[in-house]
Amino acid sequence: MDIAERTQELALKVHQHKGSVETEEATKNAFVMPFISSVLGYDVFNPAEVIPEFTVDVGMKKGEKVDYAIVHDGEVQVLVEAKKVNDPLRIEHASQLFRYFAVTNARIAILTNGETYHFYTDLDAPNRMDDKPFLIFDLTDIDETLLPELAKLTKESFDLDSVINAAGELKYVGRIKRVLAAQFTEPDDEWVRFLTTRVYERSFTQRVRDQFLPLVDKAMRQFLTEQVNDRLKTALGSSGGYVSGRVAPFDDMGAADLGGPTITDSGEAPADVDEEAGEARRGILTTEEELEGFRIVRAIVCSEVQAARITARDTKTYFGVLLDDNNRRPIARLWFNRSQKYLGVFDAAKNETRIPITHAEEIYQHADQLRATVARYLTGSNGAAGSSAG
Rank of each mutant, 00 (worst) to 15 (best):
D159P: 08
L160N: 06
T154N: 03
G114P: 00
T116L: 09
P148M: 10
I136Q: 01
K132P: 01
D161H: 14
T140A: 14
P126K: 08
R107S: 04
E115A: 11
D161E: 15
M129V: 08
A109E: 02
D161T: 15
D131C: 03
P133N: 00
A151H: 09
K132A: 11
I142N: 00
D124C: 11
T116V: 15
F158T: 10
H118C: 10
T112F: 02
F134K: 04
L123N: 00
H118S: 03
D141K: 14
D143E: 14
E115G: 04
F134L: 06
E144M: 14
L139W: 03
L146F: 06
I110C: 02
A151P: 00
P133T: 05
N127C: 12
S162F: 11
I142T: 02
L111A: 06
F134P: 01
S162D: 15
H118P: 07
S162A: 15
A151I: 07
Y120E: 08
T145K: 14
E115P: 00
D131H: 04
T116D: 00
M129C: 10
D122T: 01
L123S: 09
L153D: 03
N127S: 13
D143W: 03
H118E: 09
Y120G: 01
M129T: 04
I136A: 09
K155A: 11
T140E: 14
D138G: 10
L160K: 00
N127Y: 12
F134S: 08
K155D: 11
L153T: 05
I136C: 12
I142W: 02
Y117S: 01
S157V: 11
T154D: 11
L123T: 00
I142F: 07
P148K: 10
E149N: 14
F137M: 01
L146T: 04
I142A: 00
L147M: 12
A109R: 04
S157L: 08
H118V: 03
D141G: 12
T116N: 00
Y120T: 06
T145W: 05
L111W: 02
P133L: 01
L153N: 01
N113Q: 11
P126G: 12
V163K: 03
I164D: 11
H118M: 10
D124W: 04
T140K: 15
A106D: 02
D159C: 08
T112C: 01
F134Y: 01
Y117A: 03
D161W: 13
L123V: 07
D124Y: 09
K152F: 08
D124V: 03
D138T: 07
R128C: 10
L111P: 01
H118D: 06
R107Y: 10
I142K: 01
L146R: 10
I110T: 09
K155C: 07
E149R: 13
I108L: 05
K152S: 06
E156A: 14
P148S: 13
P133M: 11
R128F: 11
Y117E: 04
S162E: 13
M129L: 14
K132M: 13
E144C: 07
